[in-house]
Design a protein around this nucleic acid. Structure first.
Length: 668
DNA sequence: GCTAAAAATGTTTTT
DNA sequence: CATTTTTAGC
């Protein structure tokens, strides 16, 4: 009789049937594994907060590459460029350097890249290959310029006694119309009914805006997406080229895509349908800029066979935190049924803390942070989240006093400060001499030049009566032209040397320095920003590349890079909730849970805006791993509504004590 | 026509 | 609170 050997069998799925260097089966749970092993065809991954969504994406990238997929044919679209870079870095760490060759970025940076690459196709839409990119405030400035053409001078506007929308509202109407693929009329009707009688003029303004952008060769954010979409739709060759190049598409945060982005995905995935959408409908927080939750909810309808995978096990937070966040989101009238569970038991319940006033709130947080640090929680594992950038001003003062170094995300970025924008305007004029908005900005900086003179000079420039190299004719135009001549000379000299971006920037800075000194009393602080910019500029090889980057993915650091913290020192994170998306910390504070502040009074009116606020709070609370503290100061006067706010946020009002511990501050 | 000081306004969140 | 608008003065 033969000797029998018992060989262990196991149900082998394809994760183990092939030879992978990564042991997917051991490192992922069943649902994650299913997503990672998903091969061709469409798939929708509904991934609740903290369920390992990023991990799943990273492993799928690695898995595809292990299976021999060319990295370049994978396209990973994320919400920020930082997120994409971080994911690919982690994938490379997991597998190898091939992962870094994956194409990744935001929809905007991706579109921008393609448009530059295929710039010759743009001419039929009226754009030249060297178009520049407008950020939001640039675009608003253009609209403002055109606004004057439509309504006439401020005097005329006043005389006719009408209230034509401000630049911001106007631009918002135009932008919403483009990014939601709706007509201007429909947008006004839905979002700005009080401006309905102004519809004809708004329409005219929108037309002027389109013409202006083409004449001056400028694209705004929406154009980047809209133009690529048009190219794909109308140019079959290019579409096929893109479809061939990007065989595997993955889109993160799908709940925050707008119509344009969704349509773009449909075009790109058109023939192969290898597209994986990942997201969480409960975390949709960008409706205000045209994001449409329907895109994720109805994603399966767009494809014949769409796999749907749900990730529901949360690996981030303790069960008490999840119980509270489930409670918060399940009170929604819209009714997303969310029931995340966790195997991590937690010692303590989340805390809901009432303070007497704002200052006490700040002091309490500082004190808590100091205590946590003593308990051994590093500052880097603590975050303070706020609804709006300015909600943390008072706390920032308190933090500085206590010498707690922090890093702030969201709110003002340094490219948005007036002085950095001034420098950028000079560069833009060099890159694109037709850029009237930038001309206007830099001319007004000059002593003795007001709106009148500026517009005269700009007209002369546009008509070619004067130019950088030929400033002679200025004499006839303006009296004190010394400053303008100096400006022209400087720009001409700088422009002569276009291969050295850093040098151009420093020349401008040198020229600008006296202006800065005169204009602001906090000269030194601002000069530092300007010099930082000079340093950044040195890294670029063309002015256009620098300018596009500043518009599309500017440095995220906010202005106040406080406390001169040594490089590797642990920093506390201060962030808006929007900028905290996708991140996590051991301990999270959420401030201002006061009805009227969060949610803000202006969100009271409609269910949609109110629900978005609720999801925002949900996003904030689900960032916490072990400790969650919600605070609200009492009796705050709100000038917006003229009311004294004294009620706890409706989102957590009446939460039973089984979900949270209630505290009130008492002074010793 | 420009500037600077005073008054009003509106006010997220971000690519 | 910071930007924008109005007003007064040069």
């Amino acid at each position: 009789m033969k000797h029998l050997i018992l060989k262990k069998t196991r149900s082998e799925d394809h994760s183990t049937s092939k030879k992978y260097t990564i042991r997917y089966g051991d490192e992922l749970n069943a649902e994650q594994l299913q997503a990672v092993m998903h091969d061709t065809g469409a798939a929708l991954i509904i991934a609740g907060a903290g369920t390992g969504k990023t991990r799943t994406l990273i492993y799928r990238v690695a898995r595809l590459i292990e299976d021999g997929v060319q990295p370049e044919t994978i396209l990973l679209l994320t919400f920020t460029r930082k997120a994409a870079a971080e994911m690919l870095r982690r994938a490379a760490h997991l597998l190898d350097g091939r992962c870094e060759a994956v194409s990744g970025g935001t929809f905007h940076s991706f579109s921008h890249g393609i448009l530059r690459r295929s710039a010759q196709h743009l001419e039929r839409y009226g754009f030249a290959p060297n178009f520049s990119v407008l950020d939001q405030s640039d675009a608003e400035d253009v609209v403002n310029l055109l606004r004057a053409q439509v309504v006439g001078s401020p005097d005329a506007e006043k005389r006719s006694k009408r209230r034509f929308p401000r630049k911001q509202a106007l631009f918002d109407i135009i932008s919403t119309s483009v990014s939601c693929c709706k007509s201007i009329e429909a947008v006004i009707k839905a979002d700005y009914p009080h401006y309905e009688q102004e519809t004809p003029d708004i329409l005219q303004l929108a037309r002027l805006y389109e013409t202006y952008k083409r004449r001056h060769n400028l694209m705004d954010y929406d154009d980047l997406l809209a133009m690529l979409l048009r190219l794909c739709t109308e140019n079959a060759d290019l579409r096929r080229e893109l479809q061939t190049q990007y065989r595997y598409i993955m889109v993160d945060e799908y709940q925050d895509t707008n119509q344009l982005q969704h349509d773009l995905v449909l075009q790109l995935a058109g023939n192969h349908e290898n597209v994986m959408a990942v997201g969480d409908d409960a975390q949709s927080i960008y409706a205000f800029r045209g994001a449409n939750v329907e895109n994720i909810l109805r994603f399966p309808d767009a494809f014949r066979h769409c796999a749907i995978i749900k990730l529901e096990q949360n690996f981030r937070s303790t069960q008490p935190i999840l119980s509270l966040t489930n409670e918060i989101i399940n009170r929604s009238s819209v009714g997303y049924a969310k029931n995340l569970y966790s195997l991590k038991s937690g010692a303590s319940l989340p805390a809901i803390i009432r303070t007497d006033n704002e200052q006490q709130q700040s002091q309490l947080i500082v004190q808590q942070i100091l205590e946590l640090r003593e308990q051994g929680i590093p500052l880097a594992e603590i975050a303070v989240l706020v609804r709006s950038g300015f909600h943390s001003f008072d706390l920032e003062v308190e933090l500085q006093r206590a010498n707690i170094p922090y890093q702030k995300f969201g709110g003002f970025k340094f490219v948005e400060t007036a002085h950095v924008k001034d420098i950028i305007a000079h560069l833009r004029v060099i890159a694109n001499p037709k850029d009237a908005v930038s001309w206007n900005r830099i001319l007004l900086l000059l002593e003795g030049v007001g709106p009148r003179t500026a517009s005269k000079v700009i007209d002369a420039l546009t008509d070619g009566v004067v130019s950088l190299d030929a400033p002679q004719n200025l004499n006839a135009l303006v009296k004190g032209d010394e400053n303008i001549r100096r400006l022209f000379a400087m720009l001409a000299q700088a422009a002569a040397n276009t291969d050295h971006v850093g040098e151009i920037a420093w020349r401008i800075i040198e020229y600008y320095r006296p202006i800065l000194k005169k204009k602001y009393d906090d000269y030194h602080k601002r000069l530092k920003d300007v010099e930082t910019f000079g340093g950044i500029a040195e890294r670029y090889r063309s002015v256009n590349a620098l300018l596009s980057d500043m518009a599309i993915d500017p440095p995220v650091e906010s202005v106040e890079d406080i406390a001169a913290a040594p490089k590797d020192e642990e920093l506390l994170t201060l962030s808006t909730i929007h900028s905290a998306k996708g991140l996590e910390w051991n301990t999270v504070f959420v401030l201002w849970l006061l009805d009227g502040r969060f949610p803000p009074v202006r969100a009271f009116d409609t269910v949609e805006t109110l629900e978005e606020e609720r999801r925002l709070l949900y996003v904030a609370c689900t960032r916490a791993k072990e400790r969650l503290l919600l605070t609200y100061p009492m009796n705050i006067f709100d000038r917006e509504s003229g009311m004294v706010l004294s009620k706890i946020s409706r989102f957590i009002e009446g939460i039973p004590e089984e979900f949270a511990d209630y505290f009130q501050v008492s002074v010793e």
